[in-house]
Design a binder for these strands. Structure first.
Length: 676
DNA sequence: ATCATGTACG
């Protein structure tokens, strides 16, 4: 019997100290060896603790060995092994163990229930819950948690009532779960009645968890002021989650400044704090800020906290919106270097990024590589194909989606109708529209766009008349666009006036109508629209184009002379124009209204932002490399013609993304089946 | 037990 060595304590040391040692060790292996040497392994408590450590780490074989040997000396506590089997996804073993167990207590049942709920199998979880011989508050909470975490808020709320009816007193955990279900519902009156119920309950400790859940519920139900009051009342008792909940509340409501203010004041930012900000910027159309903040995260924090899959998903999305493939690829490289594993959402945002950056091939590659695809995966690629004018492939993808048993949803139909519209697939679009059970305003908008682009302007107009709801701006916008294409000036007037009511400050609508008048030579009406804009204080939005090069985004506006390589760009443009004119190109100034103010018209002809961007890209890119230009507005007809000619003259592939579509220019041809 | 991720039309 060892007595003197400090590394080998004697038997007289109480087993409790070994218990502490097991629980505090990062790995159970050395302690295990030690206990074995000392002959202490038969001790049931120590063995159980060891088993638990192995199980927690996912070392299930070791845990199982301990378990099997243990039954020789004592009744095993099989619950921790059971939980571990569930936790690590060994469902078959878990089930077998459950059935083999000679005695099952309430912990056994609750662990099994939780195990099923975690895998999303709520039917099994519920069966288990119903079969339990005894229940505790923890059992009810486990079932509640299963419902609320898997998006079954109604069932959670119903179960809560059942629980109260059965005479169980909700504890703080119960309330937190119910409140978060209510938050997901976003129903303010439900929130109020739940709050009343909570304040009537006796013996509840309004701890930080509970207050934070309440804060989140109020915020998600649109009660931002109430949320902020809880935030302020908590004073120094706020934890990181409280701060994060308030920040994301502001982000959701579009109050970026307030979110930023809290974020800057916050001392212990964790990965969720950063993610909330980055995602918030991306979702509120501030993708450049999202990318900037991601870079700050890497440089300012020394990568503590480390970006995770949530961070990366937002960054990919931001890169997609920005059309910055270089930054996107850098983010992908970062992902690989840091071994960040993406979930389905992360891959979906990659599909989005590649689609939006013009690399539809890469988008398709990611899609194919994914093992678990969901509706969003399909929707994203369908929309990507739609933007690239590949209507047939989009249709095929939707069939595949159905074959895989994934139901098309709202976004699927938006995407597929867009694909038909851009691909000129009138009949298919009509047929698909008929299959939509309850078409939304968005679907009508897409259908009007489809009919309108295909020249069926009357039918589009009639469809609007039959709508069961008040058409939103997109519907009239689509009709107006169709009127521009097919020069239906009178109908355009009607559509535009409908639109001015809904969106009095959207300058694009005025400019569109003004251009339609200009096409018809109705210059007095053009002036009238201009005056209307001035009177209403509507400022014309500027169009710009950008090209990514050398880690920088180079931005151009019409007539821009501020770029450092301006003289080279203009020189090349003049040169190209001469060559283009020799081959029959005639500059078309009629669309110039769209991009510049009247006074500058003469000067601006032919120097639209996209041409400048294309010339810049020609100068800086490698020969044979495809040129990518992004634009925040529609590419005008003159530029479209010019870029076609340039692609032929220079023998270059030029990809232009305007708002939502790609124009792929190769050898004097454009792949887009768009209508002008 | 509470906070953070992805898609869509003019």
């Amino acid at each position: 019997m060892p007595t003197s060595s400090s590394t080998a304590p004697d038997h007289s040391r109480s087993w409790a100290s070994f218990l502490l040692l097991i629980r505090s060790s990062p790995s159970p292996i050395p302690v295990h060896a030690h206990l074995l040497k000392l002959g202490l392994l038969p001790h049931p408590h120590l063995r159980n603790a060891l088993l638990h450590s192995y199980a927690q780490l996912g070392l299930l074989h070791q845990a199982r060995r301990l378990f099997d040997e243990l039954s020789r000396w004592a009744l095993p506590d099989s619950n921790s092994l059971l939980s571990a089997y569930f936790k690590w996804g060994h469902l078959r073993e878990a089930r077998a163990l459950f059935h083999a167990m000679p005695r099952r207590n309430v912990v056994t049942w609750t662990a099994t229930l939780t195990g099923y709920a975690r895998t999303g199998d709520l039917e099994s979880a519920r069966r288990c819950f119903d079969a339990m011989p005894h229940r505790t508050v923890v059992s009810w909470n486990a079932m509640l948690s299963g419902y609320s975490q898997n998006g079954f808020e109604d069932e959670a709320l119903r179960l809560f009532h059942d629980m109260v009816d059965a005479g169980f007193r909700p504890n703080e955990t119960t309330w937190v779960l119910v409140i978060s279900s209510c938050a997901a519902r976003g129903d303010p009156s439900l929130a109020d009645s739940l709050a009343t119920l909570l304040h009537r309950a006796r013996g509840i400790d309004f701890n930080c968890f509970l207050k934070t859940a309440l804060l989140d519920m109020y915020a998600k139900c649109g009660r931002l002021a109430a949320a902020r009051r809880i935030f302020d009342d908590l004073g120094p008792r706020k934890n990181t989650v409280t701060w994060n909940a308030m920040i994301s509340a502001y982000m959701r409501s579009g109050d970026l400044a307030s979110a930023r203010e809290l974020f800057d004041r916050m001392l212990n930012k964790d990965v969720v704090s950063w993610n909330s900000m980055i995602a918030g910027y991306a979702q509120n159309g501030q993708s450049a800020f999202a990318v900037r903040l991601f870079k700050d995260m890497l440089t300012l924090t020394g990568e503590h906290p480390k970006p995770d899959e949530f961070t990366m998903a937002s960054v990919f999305s931001a890169c997609g919106h920005l059309g910055t493939l270089e930054i996107g690829n850098w983010a992908v490289a970062f992902l690989g270097k840091n071994q960040i594993r993406l979930g389905t959402s992360g891959y979906n945002s990659l599909i989005f990024m590649y689609s939006k950056c013009g690399s539809i091939k890469d988008a398709q590659r990611i899609f194919q590589e994914m093992e678990r695809k969901d509706a969003v995966s399909y929707n994203t690629l369908i929309s990507g194909l739609a933007a690239h004018g590949r209507g047939r492939e989009a249709l095929e993808l939707m069939s595949k989606m159905k074959e895989e048993g994934i139901n098309p949803d709202h976004a699927t139909y938006v995407g597929i109708l867009t694909a038909c519209s851009h691909g000129g697939l009138l009949q298919e679009g009509r047929r698909l529209f008929e299959t939509i059970e309850a078409p939304s305003n968005d679907h009508y908008g897409c259908m009007v766009d489809l009919l309108g682009r295909a020249g069926e302007v009357e039918e589009a107009n009639r469809l609007i008349q039959t709508m069961p709801m008040k058409p939103h701006a997109g519907v009239y916008g689509s009709l107006l666009n169709a009127c521009r294409i097919y020069r239906r000036t009178n109908l355009a007037e009607m559509a535009a006036y409908g639109l001015f009511e809904i969106e009095p400050n959207n300058s694009g609508n005025y400019v569109l109508l003004s251009n339609i008048y200009a096409q018809a030579g109705r210059w007095e009406d053009v002036d009238r629209v201009r005056r209307m804009m001035r009177k209403r204080g509507v400022m014309k939005a500027t169009g710009w184009s950008w090209v990514e090069h050398g880690g920088e985004v180079h931005k151009f506006i019409a007539g821009d002379r501020s770029h450092e390589r301006c003289s080279e760009i203009y020189h090349l443009l003049a040169n190209l124009r001469r060559r283009m004119e020799r081959s029959g190109y005639v500059a078309d100034g009629s669309c110039v209204l769209r991009d510049v103010v009247e006074e500058d018209r003469e000067e601006m002809v032919g120097v639209h932002s996209e041409k400048l961007a294309v010339c810049f890209a020609l100068i800086v890119s490698e020969a044979g490399e495809a040129i990518r230009v992004m634009k925040n507005m529609r590419v005008c007809w003159d530029c479209h013609t010019a870029i076609k000619a340039i692609s032929k003259l220079e023998g270059r592939e030029i990809i232009v993304r305007d708002n939502n579509r790609f124009h792929h220019f190769v050898e004097g041809q454009c792949s887009c089946k768009d209508y002008w």
